[in-house]
Amino acid sequence: MTYLYNIGTYFLMIKEMFRKPTKWSVMKTLIFKDIDDLIFGSLGIVAFISFFVGGVVTIQTALNIDNPLIPKYLVGFATRQSVVLEFAPTFISIIMAGKVGSFITSSIGTMRVTEQIDALEVMGINAINYLVFPKFIAMMLYPFVISIAMFLGILGGMAACIYGGFSTLEDYITGVQMDFNTFHITYAFVKTFVFAFLLATIPSYYGYFMKGGALEVGKASTTSFVWTSVMIILLNYLLTQLMLS
């Protein structure tokens, strides 16, 4: 019953997010602030992880190809497919559930604990629209982060490939360009938009509806990370089944 209650409350929150909008002059500032916090603030860690994981994917692929009949350019091909289809949209989203998700839950949760949300409600402000909507809009720029993750993942793979001596630059680039299917990019970005929605709303839900004090803020952050990750993995499976099979 608790699960059903939570799901119902979550969808009611989504509905409320679009009702009674906050004044545009105020909302604009909130959106820019959230873009700065959630998108630009995540670029560093996303770039770092993407570059090195791209390198690791390349090394693992190269080391597992010991048949001389398999062409060397397959390393670039495998890296591209892994990074574009799964690593950038899904793996980075799980990392973002930890970074951005816990930030959203703890910041909204702290506002709940310190009665700042009550203060908004007493003033007659739609607190859900005020707090969650700017995060939702900011996260619509999330595909920009994922594009950078894709680029740096492939670049990291290239660096590992060349400096590790697994294949030549030409072979790697040939592999990256081989059998390129643009629908895979569409698939990756559809997933990215869905994950962006989850990353903005599930942590907001856990922050907004939390009860208790400072300890509960920490617990809510952990719970929001777990459920955001679970939903990302589940929807990743569903979308893959729907779009690729």
Binding site: T114, E115, D118, A119, E121, V122, M123
Partner: peptide
Amino acid sequence: RAEMGMVFQGSA
């Protein structure tokens, strides 16, 4: 509610 002012215990 816009006509109400509230001073919270913790100031908020």
